[in-house]
Write a protein that binds this DNA or RNA. Structure first.
Length: 687
DNA sequence: ATTAGGG
DNA sequence: CCCTAAT
């Protein structure tokens, strides 16, 4: 590494977070309604569109939560504070300390949330599909959208405010979540009974692959990230120029939210396939990096989720699989049988189980015990799910419809760069921005069948081979950058694709990578990152030590972008985050970095030579390598120096500046002040 | 992008 | 340090 690189590295220390996926909460009702309407009208039969409908959720207000385990060093958060976020993006801390009974091994506990969506589509020809109704079921954390001719039987959702609740903090989550659900008005559109013969797509949490997490250190929005990261593993090693966090797989969730918790700390495991010990880990990474979006709803109808297939640990596009008819029916039976508290729990268990199954291998049922266990913890608070049971006691003819369950969507990877000194809150906002931007219009939903993308959108499901009586393991959905919005950058692997991100020193930029991630993806993201990254780390040292000697040009690389190993997917996109609306959202006040005597010395020297009013030159001459010292900073410093020099030593604060320097400051100030006024004097004389 | 000043 | 108006 050249000295130059090293300097840059030292000068600019930033954190980069890469997101490969996200869990997405349900969208605001309004959005859903709108979506629903249009969908019913036009896309009832298009799985892609339906799926996309679910994604519409993402376009709404999103909130990013940072999760940390109970073992956080920060006492304030140790008590178990939860952050509740509503749709408006407001958040507040709720002290849950009362609930935080010591949880064994909480430190390693991870949580996962599942938002399921159920889509029922007729698998018959488009013309025959019944657009009359797309229903959205939402219950405590559960939303399902159904398409098909259905009779409207129930509607308790209207009028309910849908709130997204986000619970942060890892301990006693289940309880908290429950609270959230309880407290948060939830919403739910209309619920209709589905007819028969439908295709259902349920979304679940997807794989929890490759994820770097802040681990247990992120607890408060006010805490500098650096603090957290410093305690972290090598992954956040500053030496790599950038600390990078990659949330490679936040599952996108579309409707139902199931919160569960695992007790093993595998958050990091996600990053390394090898450490993937847990058979079923819907959202491993979520463990630490829990981002919870909980949709609370009053109409508590839980729709059991079956999982047929899960994402591979590596995190491929999540796949939706056809439900086995029998199981589905059975399930229905169960539901109808019991619609009460314990019942609900049951469902949740099922969910978990299914998830685990998927991961295991799509073999339904083997991991039941395991997952169930976690579920218990996770899905505590039965009351909340009181009405989870789905009303439909009868499930007519399932023949002509295909039931699919979308465990989760994988969101294109995002890379976010943010100063270490930024607060967690700003990180959240940055992430939200990134996610929102991506989801706002740059996504496409792709349908995979047998691992092959289904290109012809005009074919019916039947024609395509998606029918209820067929093996459902082969159907999958994936999110991918919309070429229309973000034309695929150059050749894969080319770093050029990173250029798209160079907005002028944006606080964050992310790079949307291919959605399709292969199993091996985890490592790719996890490890090469360091190798590829050539971030700059800021350091006061260098600049202060020999500011004058650091004359270099090449300020160009102030934009640090970390190339992300390209996936083997053709689609790639880079999106710049536009955070103009609310600068405050991300613009964190820079950390205070008092000038050292050495810096003052360099400044004085430069000003003596160049004069005041030429701060850019001063900067270039004496602080070119000190990236954190802008010409404005230098100008300000000079201003304060002049002031300091004028006041009595007793009134001065901070590191004392040698009187000798102060004298020079006054001298230079006086001198250049005169120089500046000369022209004016001349003018005055002339006129 | 810089400069100059007020906050 | 931040924020802005004015260049």
């Amino acid at each position: 590494m050249s000295q130059h690189d090293f300097c840059d590295m030292v000068l600019s220390r930033r954190l980069e977070y890469g997101f490969n996926g996200y869990q997405v909460p349900s969208m605001p009702r309004a959005a859903r309604s709108a979506r629903r309407r249009s969908s019913a009208r036009n896309n009832a039969e298009d799985p892609k569109l339906c799926a996309f409908d679910l994604l519409a959720t993402l376009a709404g207000n999103l909130l990013v939560g940072n999760s940390s385990s109970a073992s956080t060093s920060n006492s304030s958060t140790q008590n178990g504070n939860c952050v509740i976020n509503d749709l408006n993006g407001e958040e507040g801390y709720v002290d849950q300390s009362d609930h935080s009974e010591p949880q064994p091994d909480d430190r390693s506990s991870t949580e996962k949330e599942i938002i399921n969506s159920l889509i029922i589509l007729p698998d018959i020809d488009e013309g025959k599909s019944n657009p009359s109704g797309i229903d959205i079921h939402a219950s405590a954390g559960d939303v399902s959208i159904k398409l098909g001719d259905t009779a409207d039987t129930k509607d308790q959702s209207e009028g309910l405010g849908a709130d997204m609740l986000s619970c942060e903090q890892g301990n006693t989550d289940s309880e908290r979540v429950g609270d959230f659900v309880r407290n948060g008005p939830s919403v739910l559109p209309k619920v209709k009974d589905e007819t028969h013969g439908q295709m259902k797509v349920e979304s679940h949490i997807s794989d929890g692959a490759d994820v770097y997490s802040l681990k247990d250190h992120v607890t408060s929005d006010k805490k500098p990230l650096a603090r957290h990261s410093s305690n972290n593993s090598s992954r956040l090693d500053p030496c790599e120029n950038k600390d990078q966090l990659s949330l490679s797989s936040f599952p996108v969730e579309n409707g139902v939210v199931v919160v569960s918790r695992d007790n093993d700390d595998n958050s990091s495991g996600c990053t390394h396939p090898s450490s993937y010990t847990k058979p079923f880990r819907p959202v491993p990474y979520i463990g630490d990096r829990r981002i919870r979006k909980v949709l609370a709803s009053q109409s508590c109808k839980a729709i059991p989720r079956y999982k047929s297939k899960f994402l591979r640990p590596g995190g491929g596009p999540y796949q939706a699989h056809f439900l086995d008819s029998d199981r589905w029916l059975n399930y229905q039976g169960i539901q109808s049988q019991r619609n009460f508290p314990f019942k609900k729990r049951k469902f949740y268990d099922m969910d978990c189980r299914s998830i685990s199954d998927k991961e295991t291998n799509g073999k339904g049922g083997d991991n039941i015990s395991t997952s169930r266990k976690s579920l218990k913890e996770d899905c505590s608070e039965p009351e909340r799910f009181t009405s989870l049971a789905v009303p439909r006691s009868t499930f007519p003819d399932v023949d002509s419809h295909v039931k699919l369950r979308i465990e989760s969507f994988r969101v294109p990877e995002m890379l976010i760069e943010i100063p270490e000194t930024a607060t967690v809150g700003s990180l959240k906002r940055a992430v939200v921005d990134a996610v929102t931007t991506i989801l706002g219009g740059g996504l496409h939903v792709g349908v995979l069948l047998q691992g092959q993308k289904v290109g012809d959108d005009s074919k019916t499901l039947q024609q395509t081979g998606i029918s209820h009586d067929r093996a459902l393991d082969a159907l999958g959905f994936m999110l991918e950058p919309d070429p229309a919005h973000y034309p695929p950058p150059i050749s894969p692997g080319s770093s050029s694709l990173l250029r798209h991100c160079d907005a002028p020193q944006p606080l964050t930029r992310y790079h949307a990578a291919p959605t399709k991630v292969q199993p091996g993806n985890c490592d790719k993201l996890a490890e090469p990152r360091g190798a590829h990254s050539r971030k700059l780390v800021e350091s006061d040292r260098d600049s202060t030590t020999s500011p004058v000697n650091m004359l270099r040009k090449g300020r160009a690389e102030s934009k640090a972008l970390v190339p992300i190993p390209s996936m083997n997917t053709g689609a790639k996109a880079a999106v710049a985050i536009h955070r103009k609306s609310k600068r405050s959202e991300i613009a964190q006040r820079r950390i205070r970095r008092p000038f050292t005597v050495a810096e003052v010395e360099a400044l004085v020297q430069a000003v003596e030579k160049l004069g005041t009013g030429r701060w850019r030159d001063v900067k270039l001459h004496a602080f070119d390598s000190a990236r954190h010292r802008t010409y404005v900073d230098l100008k300000d410093k000079w201003k304060t120096l002049v002031h300091t020099a004028k006041i009595s030593p007793q009134q001065r604060r901070g590191e004392p500046v040698p009187q000798e320097l102060l004298d020079r400051v006054l001298t230079a100030h006086a001198y250049w002040g005169q120089q500046q006024s000369r022209p004016q004097q001349l003018k005055q004389l002339l006129y």
